[in-house]
Lab assay of single mutants.
Amino acid sequence: MEQGTVKWFNAEKGFGFIERENGDDVFVHFSAIQGDGFKSLDEGQAVTFDVEEGQRGPQAANVQKA
């Protein structure tokens, strides 16, 4: 798993971006967030995640709040 920081996340649209430790950004969809209840992330929040190849390039999977 990688570690990163939430760059931004739009809860209304259900997606955002995580900044990886290497400085690259990776797309995150709310469906990739682990846990119960409303799935959202806060700007600046530390997270761990896997990276999978999506239809439009790399995207975060198995996102967990650190």
Rank of each mutant, 00 (worst) to 15 (best):
Met1Leu: 12
Met1Trp: 09
Met1Glu: 10
Met1Ser: 14
Met1Thr: 14
Met1Cys: 08
Met1Asn: 13
Glu2Val: 12
Gln3Asp: 07
Gln3Glu: 10
Gln3Val: 13
Gln3Tyr: 14
Gln3Phe: 14
Gly4Leu: 01
Gly4Asp: 00
Thr5Asp: 04
Thr5Lys: 14
Thr5Ile: 13
Thr5Arg: 15
Val6Lys: 01
Val6Gln: 00
Val6Tyr: 00
Val6Met: 04
Lys7Asn: 03
Lys7Arg: 11
Lys7Gln: 03
Trp8Leu: 03
Trp8Val: 03
Trp8Ser: 04
Trp8Pro: 00
Trp8Asp: 02
Phe9Thr: 02
Phe9Lys: 03
Phe9Pro: 01
Phe9Ser: 02
Asn10Ala: 07
Asn10Val: 05
Ala11Cys: 11
Ala11Glu: 10
Ala11Tyr: 12
Ala11Thr: 14
Ala11Val: 12
Glu12Leu: 14
Glu12Ile: 13
Glu12Cys: 12
Glu12Phe: 15
Lys13Thr: 06
Lys13Asn: 06
Lys13Pro: 02
Lys13Tyr: 09
Lys13Met: 11
Gly14Ala: 03
Gly14Met: 03
Gly14Val: 02
Gly14Ser: 03
Gly14His: 03
Phe15Cys: 05
Phe15Asp: 01
Phe15Trp: 15
Phe15Ser: 03
Gly16Asn: 00
Gly16Trp: 00
Gly16Ser: 00
Gly16Met: 01
Gly16Val: 01
Gly16Ile: 01
Gly16Ala: 02
Gly16Gln: 00
Gly16Arg: 00
Phe17Asp: 01
Phe17His: 03
Phe17Cys: 05
Phe17Ile: 07
Phe17Ser: 03
Phe17Arg: 04
Phe17Asn: 02
Ile18Gly: 00
Ile18Asn: 00
Glu19Ser: 15
Glu19Trp: 15
Glu19His: 15
Glu19Tyr: 15
Arg20Pro: 04
Arg20Phe: 05
Arg20Met: 08
Arg20Cys: 06
Glu21Cys: 12
Glu21Gly: 11
Glu21Arg: 14
Glu21Met: 13
Glu21Tyr: 12
Glu21Ser: 14
Glu21Ala: 14
Asn22Gln: 11
Asn22Gly: 12
Asn22Leu: 11
Asn22Glu: 12
Gly23Ile: 04
Gly23Met: 12
Gly23Asp: 09
Gly23Glu: 09
Gly23Pro: 02
Gly23Val: 06
Gly23Lys: 12
Asp24Cys: 10
Asp24Tyr: 11
Asp24Asn: 14
Asp24Glu: 13
Asp24Leu: 13
Asp24Ile: 14
Asp24Arg: 15
Asp25Val: 11
Asp25Ser: 09
Asp25Glu: 09
Asp25Cys: 09
Val26Asp: 00
Val26Leu: 14
Val26Ala: 03
Phe27Ile: 03
Phe27Val: 02
Phe27Thr: 01
Phe27Ala: 02
Phe27Trp: 06
Val28Glu: 01
Val28Thr: 03
Val28Arg: 00
Val28Met: 06
His29Phe: 09
His29Gln: 03
His29Pro: 03
His29Gly: 03
His29Val: 03
His29Ile: 04
Phe30Glu: 05
Phe30Trp: 15
Phe30Ile: 08
Ser31Asn: 07
Ser31Lys: 09
Ser31Arg: 10
Ala32Lys: 08
Ala32Pro: 01
Ala32Asp: 08
Ala32Trp: 04
Ala32Phe: 04
Ala32Ile: 03
Ala32Leu: 03
Ala32Val: 06
Ile33Met: 05
Ile33Ala: 03
Ile33Arg: 00
Ile33Leu: 07
Ile33Gly: 02
Ile33Trp: 04
Gln34Val: 15
Gln34Asp: 09
Gln34Tyr: 10
Gln34Ala: 12
Gly35Pro: 04
Gly35Phe: 08
Gly35Ser: 09
Gly35Ala: 10
Gly35Glu: 11
Gly35Met: 13
Gly35Trp: 10
Gly35Val: 10
Asp36Ala: 11
Asp36His: 12
Asp36Pro: 13
Asp36Gly: 10
Asp36Val: 11
Gly37Asn: 07
Gly37Trp: 07
Gly37Thr: 06
Gly37Ile: 06
Phe38Pro: 10
Phe38Cys: 09
Phe38Glu: 07
Phe38Leu: 09
Lys39Ala: 07
Lys39His: 07
Lys39Met: 07
Lys39Arg: 14
Lys39Trp: 06
Ser40Phe: 13
Ser40Cys: 10
Ser40Ala: 09
Leu41Met: 05
Leu41Lys: 02
Leu41Asn: 02
Leu41Tyr: 03
Leu41Pro: 02
Asp42Val: 15
Asp42Met: 14
Asp42Glu: 13
Asp42Gln: 14
Asp42Pro: 08
Glu43Asn: 14
Glu43Cys: 10
Glu43Gln: 15
Glu43Ile: 15
Gly44Ile: 02
Gly44Ala: 05
Gly44Asn: 07
Gln45His: 07
Gln45Met: 12
Gln45Phe: 05
Gln45Cys: 08
Gln45Lys: 05
Ala46Tyr: 11
Ala46Gln: 13
Ala46Ile: 13
Ala46Arg: 15
Ala46Glu: 11
Val47Asn: 00
Val47Arg: 00
Val47Gly: 00
Thr48His: 08
Thr48Ile: 12
Thr48Pro: 01
Thr48Trp: 14
Thr48Tyr: 12
Thr48Glu: 06
Phe49Arg: 00
Phe49Leu: 04
Phe49Pro: 00
Phe49Met: 05
Asp50Ala: 10
Asp50Phe: 13
Asp50Cys: 09
Asp50Met: 13
Asp50Trp: 12
Val51Ala: 04
Val51Glu: 04
Val51His: 04
Val51Ser: 04
Val51Thr: 07
Val51Pro: 03
Glu52Leu: 12
Glu52Trp: 11
Glu52Gln: 11
Glu52Arg: 09
Glu52Tyr: 14
Glu52Pro: 03
Glu53Phe: 13
Glu53Val: 14
Glu53Tyr: 13
Glu53Lys: 10
Glu53Cys: 10
Gly54Tyr: 06
Gly54Ser: 11
Gly54Cys: 07
Gly54Thr: 13
Gly54Trp: 06
Gly54Val: 06
Gly54Pro: 03
Gln55Glu: 11
Gln55His: 12
Gln55Ala: 15
Gln55Lys: 15
Gln55Leu: 14
Gln55Met: 13
Gln55Arg: 15
Gln55Phe: 15
Gln55Val: 14
Arg56Asp: 09
Arg56Ala: 08
Gly57Val: 04
Gly57Asn: 05
Gly57Trp: 05
Pro58Gly: 05
Pro58Asn: 07
Pro58Glu: 06
Pro58His: 07
Pro58Trp: 10
Pro58Lys: 11
Pro58Gln: 08
Pro58Phe: 10
Gln59Phe: 14
Gln59Arg: 12
Gln59Cys: 07
Gln59Lys: 10
Ala60Asn: 01
Ala60Thr: 03
Ala60Tyr: 01
Ala60Met: 01
Ala61Pro: 02
Ala61Leu: 11
Ala61Cys: 08
Ala61Gly: 08
Ala61Glu: 06
Asn62Val: 04
Asn62Pro: 01
Asn62His: 10
Val63Pro: 01
Val63Gln: 01
Val63His: 01
Val63Leu: 05
Val63Lys: 00
Gln64Asp: 06
Gln64Val: 12
Gln64Cys: 07
Gln64Tyr: 09
Gln64Pro: 01
Gln64Phe: 08
Lys65Trp: 07
Lys65Phe: 10
Lys65Pro: 12
Lys65Val: 14
Ala66Glu: 09
Ala66Trp: 10
Ala66Ile: 15
Ala66Phe: 11
